[in-house]
Amino acid sequence: MDSPHGAAVKAEDFGLKGPRGWAFRGVGIDAAPGSLIAVEGPSGSGRTCLLLALTGRMKPTRGHAEVGGHRLPKRMTAVRRIAALGPVTGVNELDQALTVAEQLREGALLQRHYGAPVRAMLRPRAERRAAAEARIAAALEAAGLDLATLPKGGRTSVRDLERLESVRLSVAIALLGSPGLLALDDLDLKLSDTERAEAWNLLRSVAARGITVLAVCSEAPADAIVLRTSPKEPDGSAGPDAPAVAQGDADAEAEADAGAGSGSEIDTKHDTKSVSENDDTKGADDALAEAGRA
């Protein structure tokens, strides 16, 4: 893989509001390249919407952010090019019908189409295949996934993977594009304490390579820069408008108020779907569903 160059993540009074209220608001952060950032909060607190907004997949409605020098919401497309998105339900999921090897080849193929320079696509087929295999091998090593340990090796079905193995596969696929920012949703979902520790150790190793990591979780580790999201009020309105600030040290904290949902679109170009960046209302139902699930 190419040498990674992490993306700094900054935000000031960052928020997203839709027809049903705030998904999140008042978010502030100043994280250096190669940081480990955790978005911590309960289900329904807007965690996924914040992740999608910081990776250029949802358009914010308040304040601004900057990822890798690209300002949001003005340069969402540029942010998507440097931010690799792990599985998000309904947006960018592993294909359960594929084998692990097929999923990796598909990821490499998509990267060649969307992320590789034109000159790379003009190389002989055998050379392109060898380059793709080398990138896959390097990504698997970085993600700590040894295909030989799987029940059927690379022919193991994605649906048969254990949860932690799925996380490692997702990380490997994301790393194929040598991103500046790696973002994962629901990192600790269905993981035991031991598996959770392994997952965070994996992300620490990715961050140590220089790649900035952003992970949604229910409980953040002590060494992460933490953005905390708050559940919505019983009446569905946003909670108290407390500003959230997370500085570039492990003890910094943030609080993001959450509403019932967002009318902002989800733009997943370069992932598995594509929605026009200029249409603020298209995909509103999907965005509302994501805000409610986050």
Results as ranks from 00 to 15, higher is better:
162 E>V: 09
95 D>T: 13
41 G>P: 01
8 A>R: 11
87 P>F: 06
192 S>P: 11
87 P>W: 02
95 D>G: 04
68 G>H: 03
218 S>W: 08
157 S>K: 15
96 Q>I: 12
185 D>R: 01
292 G>V: 01
5 H>Y: 00
79 V>K: 09
54 L>T: 08
249 D>Y: 12
73 P>K: 07
294 A>W: 07
122 L>C: 05
66 E>Q: 12
191 L>D: 09
227 L>K: 04
91 V>R: 06
114 Y>Q: 13
83 A>E: 05
25 R>H: 09
6 G>P: 04
83 A>T: 06
70 H>A: 15
139 A>V: 06
83 A>W: 09
171 V>C: 02
25 R>W: 13
288 L>Q: 09
99 T>H: 11
206 V>L: 05
250 A>V: 02
180 G>H: 05
248 G>F: 05
193 D>Q: 13
222 A>N: 03
165 E>Q: 15
95 D>R: 12
128 R>K: 13
15 G>S: 09
254 A>D: 03
219 E>Q: 14
190 K>Q: 14
294 A>G: 15
63 G>Q: 00
187 L>K: 02
142 A>G: 04
286 D>N: 07
258 A>C: 15
241 D>V: 07
216 V>T: 13
112 R>Y: 04
168 R>P: 04
126 A>L: 10
136 I>R: 04
135 R>K: 10
30 D>A: 12
256 A>C: 11
76 M>H: 02
4 P>L: 10
269 K>V: 15
286 D>G: 15
145 L>R: 06
168 R>C: 05
237 S>W: 03
191 L>S: 05
32 A>D: 11
270 H>Q: 11
78 A>Q: 15
234 P>H: 03
8 A>N: 00
226 V>K: 11
191 L>P: 05
202 L>P: 06
180 G>E: 03
40 E>I: 03
39 V>I: 15
78 A>E: 15
182 L>T: 01
159 R>F: 13
16 L>A: 14
285 D>R: 10
56 G>W: 00
262 S>L: 11
43 S>K: 10
119 R>W: 14
18 G>F: 06
88 V>Q: 07
225 I>S: 05
22 W>R: 08
